[in-house]
């Protein structure tokens, strides 16, 4: 039997509906403890509550602000440091060991430190997102520039271009291509940083809500928040994909 790839989404949706129906039925039959695995209807109800009384919005706003703030700052600083390190050997000597160390450790362990340094407000969450994203982007740009196509560099040189022309016409477009190629990973890192930061210590945010749901043993709320985070990240993935497709239309 051959499957028509155009109808894959119908099969996927049908399978999801079946799993949800089985899950619901298992809950209804008493085979699953609702304390640990609440049925989909309970999760839907928790979601409805979150949106109907509007209390989700400040949390979404807090997480979005922290994640996007960390993402933008991380990309800017990661690119700047990556370019500097790739072009100036002295800066590479100083930065590479630090970045390698930061890359080697699970950077979320820095969350409590950022809370001590920057408080329980949004700054510590932005800082965690920033450190996760900037290290990723630094290595993307640093290694990317060192592996730039030498033929393009020679082409610009032989056309009479100097250092600035090389940066503008070869290095920056190459950097943009590498960064865009890693944008989806960076978005995931940024939300991880924001949520983990909120999970450690916060008064708002989806991570804070998760922590609250955990402390009150509210599995339905926890599933609802996980679902929201998944949808949010998927939407941003999709937007990143469109941006990448537009900016990389030459590929």
């Amino acid at each position: 039997m051959t499957l028509d790839p155009r109808h894959a989404w119908i099969r996927q949706l049908a399978t999801l509906a079946l799993v949800l129906a089985l899950w619901e039925a298992a809950g209804y039959a008493g085979w699953l403890n609702p304390l640990f695995a609440p049925p989909p209807s309970r999760i839907g109800s928790a979601l409805h509550d979150l949106f109907s009384d509007g209390r989700i919005w400040p949390h979404l706003e807090a997480t979005f602000t922290a994640a996007l703030g960390g993402l933008i700052l991380g990309i800017i600083v990661g690119i700047a440091l990556g370019v500097l390190a790739a072009l100036i050997p002295f800066i590479a000597e100083l930065l590479e060991p630090v970045m390698t160390l930061l890359n080697a450790i699970p950077r979320v362990v820095l969350a409590p430190l950022f809370v001590i340094w920057l408080g329980v407000g949004i700054s510590s969450k932005i800082a965690l997102s920033f450190i996760l994203v900037s290290v990723l982007i630094f290595f993307t740009v640093f290694t990317g520039i060192r592996q730039v196509d030498r033929r393009l560099v020679e082409r610009i040189t032989t056309l009479g271009g100097g250092r600035w022309a090389l940066i503008r016409h070869v290095y920056l477009p190459s950097v943009a291509a590498w960064v865009l190629g890693n944008l989806k990973v960076a978005v995931g890192f940024a939300f991880t940083g924001a949520c983990v930061g909120e999970f450690v210590a916060a008064t708002r945010g989806l991570g804070y809500l998760l922590s609250f749901a955990q402390s009150t043993y509210n599995a339905a709320l926890m599933f609802a928040i996980i679902l929201i985070i998944m949808v949010v990240v998927l939407v941003i993935f999709s937007l990143s994909g469109r941006l990448e497709k537009y900016l990389m239309r030459w590929t």
Binding site: L152, E154, R155, P173
Partner: peptide
Amino acid sequence: FQDDALLPWK
């Protein structure tokens, strides 16, 4: 050159 070495993004 043998490779045309055109900038792919232009």
